[in-house]
């Protein structure tokens, strides 16, 4: 589905890099390649960048365990479930997750603008962002061997 996203460092404001200590996440894939900042699900405190209410912010990504009661466990939200109203009690709001590359089952693939996501809220808790998913296209299924894929912004692969 989505195990992480990578965004060019130049696309993240310096104040967010400082605030969230993102320097440690900077990587380059080649000698001449630009710097990227990675947001991986497997990290201790998984975060995702997201555009919400006209602002780019860094948000907690999903919910790691059932012990964090109230939020659905996991990192992804089925589009069909959202549309059926299953998540209504968490006041879902749409967000856009900017990304240049997305990771799924060890495969990094290029995306044009990013992914669609949803921001969920609970009283007295920090909001959480989930990646919206849908049934995988044939191409995506062959590439990643996954039957779900993220909902991409402004494109379909």
């Amino acid at each position: 589905m989505c195990d992480g996203v990578s965004l060019l460092r130049s696309e993240i404001p310096q104040r967010l890099i400082r605030q969230f200590k993102l320097e440690s996440r900077v990587v380059v894939r080649g000698e001449q390649a630009p710097e990227e900042i990675r947001f991986l699900r497997r990290e201790g405190r998984p975060w995702l960048p997201a555009w919400h209410a006209g602002q780019l912010g860094i948000h907690a990504w999903g919910c790691r365990s059932r012990q964090e009661q109230g939020f659905p466990p996991g990192a992804w939200c089925h589009r069909e479930h959202l549309e059926a109203g299953y998540w209504r009690h968490l006041q879902p709001e749409p967000v856009e997750i900017p990304a240049n590359y997305v990771l799924d089952r060890g495969i990094w693939y290029v995306v044009r603008d990013g992914l669609r996501g949803v921001l969920l809220r609970r009283p007295r808790d920090v909001p959480r962002v989930y990646v919206l998913t849908e049934a995988a296209s044939h191409y995506y299924h062959v590439m990643t061997r996954h039957d779900r894929m993220p909902v991409l912004l402004h494109e379909r692969i």
Binding site: R29, Q32, A33, P34, N100, H138, Y139, V142, M143
Partner: peptide, 17 residues
Amino acid sequence: LPHLMGQPVGVLSNQGA
């Protein structure tokens, strides 16, 4: 997509295989 400069890039067939 100029950010692909210097990256190890592979173009996949339409099947993704």
